[in-house]
């Protein structure tokens, strides 16, 4: 049973990353009509950003959690301003090809300088309060041993996902975003600077990816290709969930992570492929995806 709970926890953690990444993809797709193939590379950049902050500037995990998403978000906004915005009005596929090219450039550059092996990033050991040493160590829950950092990743990701949901579904800014997704021309004619909103949206989506990267650094190490395979799984998650609903993306992301974890326990040979197999099944039964509208 211990092993089952452990795999469930791994599943939840992967699910957190799926949710954070597919959420960003969905928001970006809504505003820019672009499937951001560079999402995995930007996730990787988030992890590297944390690594650089620690090793070059001595800035630790907690600050990295804030600085890395902002830095990568700004990088994304520069990409949007200098390249992506020129694709407006063209077929969606060009956005896929352009961001694929960006992903190759970013991943290739990092591979040149850092090879393909992983760089270690330690779990933070501060603040130290009583017996607590930051997020290191674990708690015995009776039925399982819970490494604190893993629990933190799941809960923090969930909070960030729900905050993003709240921002988009319940605030004024979110109303601008939803309206501009439907009819950008009219929203602009109401006096809202839609091009700037598009840039900020791309920054937000990319920032979420970078945040996932920082969270994953202590668990999966920091590798130039850490996002390359992940992004393909996230594409499958997006096909399964559809991109029409923010909550749908979150739930699908976490659920698929859990299913993957369960598969790792019951039939480990299929753990790499189960998400893709599920995608095929969903396409056969409900081609528009679980929450999606026709596209």
């Amino acid at each position: 049973m211990q092993a089952l709970y452990a795999q469930l926890l791994v599943g939840l953690i992967n699910g957190s990353f799926y949710a954070l990444l597919s959420l960003g993809l969905a928001v970006i797709f809504g505003m820019l009509n672009i499937i951001n193939f560079a999402h995995g590379a930007l996730y990787m950049m988030g992890a590297f950003c944390a690594y650089f902050l620690l090793n070059l500037a001595g800035i630790g995990y907690w600050w990295a959690l804030i600085i890395a998403p902002i830095a990568v978000g700004v990088f994304g906004m520069i990409l949007e301003r200098t390249m992506l915005q020129w694709l407006a009005g063209l077929d969606h596929l060009y956005g896929l090809l352009l961001t694929f090219g960006i992903a190759l450039i970013v991943q290739g550059l990092f591979q040149n300088y850092f090879g393909s092996s992983g760089l270690p990033y330690a779990i933070p050991d501060y603040p130290q309060i009583g017996d607590w040493r930051g997020l290191q160590g674990g708690i015995n829950l009776g039925f399982m041993f819970l490494p604190i950092y893993r629990g933190w990743v799941v809960i923090f990701s969930l909070v960030v996902c729900l905050a993003t949901w709240f921002l988009i579904e319940k605030t004024r800014l979110g109303a601008y975003l939803r309206a501009a997704t439907e009819n950008p021309t009219l929203v602009r004619a109401f006096g809202i600077n839609v091009p700037r909103m598009i840039t900020l949206t791309y920054g937000l989506g990319v920032g979420l990816a970078a945040l996932a990267g920082v969270l994953s650094a202590p668990i999966n190490q920091v590798r130039p290709l850490m996002g390359a395979d992940l992004i393909i799984v996230v594409f499958a998650v997006v096909v399964i969930g559809g991109m029409g609903s923010i909550m749908g993306s979150i739930i699908t992301g976490f659920a698929l992570g859990v299913i993957e974890g369960l598969t790792k326990y019951f039939y480990p040979e299929a753990s790499n492929t189960v998400v893709f197999v599920l995608m095929v099944l969903v396409l056969l039964v409900k081609p528009t995806g679980l929450t999606g509208r026709a596209a």
Binding site: V233, A236, V239, T273, F276, M279, V280, L283, P287, A295
Partner: peptide
């Protein structure tokens, strides 16, 4: 399987299917 969706989704599905085969 993949013809069921169009445009960008078709691309993502074919990519995912080839990754399935890869594994």
């Amino acid at each position: 399987v993949s013809i069921r969706r169009q445009g960008i989704y078709f691309s993502m599905i074919t990519l995912a299917l080839s990754q399935l085969l890869y594994f």
